[in-house]
């Protein structure tokens, strides 16, 4: 209700709009439902930008976004890089080797160094669960978790959610049966999706061999559930899991799992848990097929399934850029300590 020439007076956010107040995004467990909504709506706007002839806006012009991956990854790193560049940020890419850890170069030291080099937003991936929390404690800017150990992969969970909302009829996840199939134990994607999908009211099923579900039943079986979060079902019965599913998300199976004795062979995994057209027939006819990538086609997912129109794996990739743009943009607007502005 006022003139809003920028720079002259504070922004008035509509009374119906939640404000974003997280300085870092380390996991989705801290996001309230309306905050997730805000991410989704902001990602909508970013998709609008991606559709323009010039898919670039100056929102983060002059901002230094430093991307450090201690674990090799191409798709997530590039997705973040494209997202940051679409917002006109200056992107610095650092491939940190895990060997620097064994050489005694500490994470804290690295964080302080990139900060001294001008990093304002830090996108990081690390093989150790919880590493971004340590980074956030020592970094004055914003930390965005690009995946830590088995713990969390918040941007993946949000892009999965975005893709489901976009592609499910009615755009709602509440009451939909969502199945995550595969190596749950080692999956940060699954862990973050547990928070976001149960918060969205999905009927979530985690399915895989018992060795790759270790400990998850104790979580899923919580009677009361965590605050605002429903229960989920943990099973090794793939037919029960897939029956009438609305969404099936297959996870990558890594060869190391056999070396450590968790699986007899990939062949046996494929025979019992591989997502084939036959198995998928138990799901709803229009059930979405998803995969966070990278895929081992023919192992955890059959190429014929990937080829289906309702396999939205490429949408996940495109939406990943929009969601990461949205998160970079939202985080950049929060200054200083969390909630410091609330004093006003």
């Amino acid at each position: 209700m006022s003139d809003r020439d920028p720079g002259a007076e504070p922004i008035v956010v509509g009374a119906d709009a939640p404000a974003w107040r997280h300085r870092h995004l380390l996991d989705v467990d801290v996001l309230a439902a309306d905050e997730i909504d805000l991410v989704m709506r902001t990602a909508d706007a970013m998709k609008g930008i991606l559709a323009r002839p010039i898919a670039k806006v100056p929102a983060l012009r002059g901002r230094n976004v430093t991307i450090i991956f201690w674990e090799a990854s191409t798709r997530t790193r590039v997705s973040f890089e494209v997202a940051a560049k679409n917002l006109s940020a200056d992107v610095v890419n650092i491939a940190a080797s895990t060997s620097s850890v064994t050489k005694g170069e500490s994470l804290v030291d690295t964080i302080r160094t990139v900060q001294a080099l001008g990093a304002q937003m830090l996108v990081m991936r690390h093989g150790t669960s919880g590493a971004p929390y340590l980074a956030a404690e020592h970094f004055d800017g914003h930390v965005l978790n690009g995946g830590d150990g088995w713990h969390a992969h918040p941007t993946q969970a949000l892009l999965d959610l975005y893709t489901m909302r976009e592609r499910l009829p009615g755009g709602s996840i509440a009451g939909r049966k969502v199945v995550i199939l595969g190596d749950i134990l080692h999956s940060r994607v699954a862990r973050s999706n547990i928070w976001s999908l149960t918060a969205a009211g999905a009927d979530l099923w985690l399915c895989g061999p018992s060795t790759l579900l270790r400990g998850l039943d104790r979580w899923g079986g919580r009677a009361a559930g965590f605050p605002g979060h429903g229960r989920f079902t943990v099973t090794s019965d793939v037919d029960a899991a897939l029956r009438d599913a609305d969404v099936v998300m297959a996870l990558r199976i890594q060869k190391e799992r056999m070396d450590s004795g968790l699986l007899p062979s990939l062949r046996e995994y494929t025979a019992r848990f591989g997502l084939t057209l036959d198995r998928l027939a138990a799901a709803k006819p229009d059930a979405l097929v998803m995969h966070p990538g990278p895929m081992n086609e023919g192992v955890e997912i059959d190429p014929a399934v990937v080829a289906l129109d309702r396999a939205v794996i490429e949408d996940q990739v495109t939406n990943g850029v929009a969601v990461r743009m949205a998160l970079l943009y939202l985080l950049a607007g929060v200054h200083g300590a969390e909630g410091a502005h609330d004093a006003a």
Partner: peptide
């Protein structure tokens, strides 16, 4: 004025 506003305005 990104640095002047407390929160990003809603799109």
């Amino acid at each position: 004025d990104l640095s002047l506003v407390a929160h990003q305005p809603v799109v």
